[in-house]
């Protein structure tokens, strides 16, 4: 089952500069585990303590995965996943 994953600039040092990579998994969590096997270190940049890191946004076919089950979101062949750094901050 092939899922296309778009990688942001900040993580491309882990994918040999690839902008788009492929992985597989029945859920987003499994996909990230698979990606970490292919691109060691990437898992820890996406997931912390069993949850999505708050510094990144992950989209499944244009939906923010936080609203469709997070790491438990189910994947189907041909789905697209996009990872973007969250842009946030504040005066405190």
């Amino acid at each position: 089952m092939a899922i296309e994953v778009r990688i942001p600039t900040i993580l491309r040092n882990l994918t040999g500069d690839a902008k788009v990579v492929e992985g597989s998994g029945a859920t987003l969590g499994e996909l990230f585990t698979d990606l970490d096997n292919r691109y060691p270190g990437i898992g820890a940049r996406l997931v912390d303590d069993g949850k999505l890191r708050r510094f990144i946004n992950v989209y499944l076919n244009d939906e923010d995965v936080r609203f469709v089950g997070g790491l438990d979101a189910e994947l189907s062949d041909g789905d697209n996943v996009t990872v973007l750094p969250a842009v946030a901050g504040g005066s405190r």
Binding site: Y59, R66, A86, V87, G89, G90, S91, R92
Partner: peptide, 23 residues
């Protein structure tokens, strides 16, 4: 211009869906 999803005087965060569209 982006939406501050936090609408806060001390914090900002791009609205995630708007960010995807713009990116």
């Amino acid at each position: 211009e982006m939406i501050n999803a936090e609408r806060s005087p001390t914090f900002y965060r791009f609205d995630s869906l708007e960010q995807l569209k713009v990116w």
